[in-house]
């Protein structure tokens, strides 16, 4: 998989191994602990460590779209990924749901020494999808058999990006000085959704069962970044922009029919 996260619209493409793209390989070790507490809670604690070789990333200045010779713009990196995940589930009861927290890192390092063109001087850098903190929570509370409320919470660290940090005059025009590869991050992601579920009928013999859900997506109206990009305004001033999707509260009504 080859990801492009620098443009206004991030996208991933897939590439088969060929004579220029070596197969990726790696190994992984994982451990896990699982136990049930007080007969109600399922707790799991897992950790892993992974090494990758021939993982692909871009050369500096690579043309990412509509590029017939994309392989010439790729470099191979070695990667390491590690993390721990804690998850607590409460599957039964009036209040049920689960919460999980993950700390994980994915780092890359260019395998080949290409002199001054080597990404970040051959040091370890954040992989494009490295998001160290990730917290997810889903909770349901049943008031009665008919009415219940659901809460969904999602938080994660913003993904790494390469951004211009300075500008300079060179060869008759303003040029951008970029940070090290993936040295900065887009803002953290946070979202809270709340929903009210109503099951009007409980007749066992009925052909269809209907559920109505009223809810609000992104209750706090947080402007989560989908992507960031820069434009030059008036030739001299360079401005950062953040593209945000669902940057406000979105109410919705769901009608589910089961049969």
């Amino acid at each position: 998989m080859i990801s492009n996260t620098t443009s206004i619209s991030p996208l991933d493409t897939w590439k088969l191994t060929d004579e220029k793209v070596k197969p990726q390989n790696g190994w992984q070790a994982a451990t896990g602990l699982y136990w049930t507490m007080a007969g109600q809670y399922d707790v799991s604690l897992e950790s892993y460590y992974k090494k990758m070789y021939n993982y692909l990333d871009y050369k500096s200045g690579a043309v990412l779209s509509m590029n017939e010779n994309l392989v010439d713009d790729l470099i191979t990196t070695q990667g390491k990924a590690y993390g721990v995940e804690l998850m607590i589930k409460k599957p039964i009861g009036k209040l049920n749901g689960w919460i999980s927290y993950t700390y994980s890192r994915t780092m890359l390092k260019e395998m080949e020494d290409r002199g001054t063109n080597t990404i970040n001087r051959g040091e370890w850098y954040n992989a494009p999808h490295d998001k160290p903190h990730d917290l997810k929570m889903v909770g349901n509370y049943k008031f009665t058999h008919r009415y219940s409320i659901s809460v969904n919470l999602d938080y994660s660290t913003g993904r790494p990006v390469t951004i211009p940090i300075s500008k300079y005059m060179y060869a008759g025009g303003y040029r951008l000085f970029y940070s090290d590869r993936n040295a900065y991050r887009i803002p953290d992601y946070f979202r809270l959704d709340i929903a009210m579920n109503i099951e009007p009928s409980h007749y066992l013999k009925q052909l269809t069962h209907m559920t109505v859900t009223f809810g609000v997506y992104n209750v706090t109206g947080r402007k989560n970044a989908y992507s960031i990009y820069y434009t030059t305004n008036g030739g001299t001033k360079i401005e950062g922009h953040m593209l945000s999707v669902f940057a406000t509260q979105i109410p919705y009504i769901n009608l589910n029919l089961k049969f």
Binding site: I8, K59, S60, G61, T116, N117, Y178, D180
Partner: peptide, 29 residues
């Protein structure tokens, strides 16, 4: 080496911010 420098410099500056922007980079010379 100079050619690579100049090509990267022009890509970093001239094509920033679009749908088809290339991978930007630190460029030292």
């Amino acid at each position: 080496e100079a050619y690579t420098y100049w090509v990267t410099l022009s890509k970093n500056s001239d094509d920033a911010g679009g749908l088809f922007s290339p991978q930007p980079s630190e460029l030292r010379g």
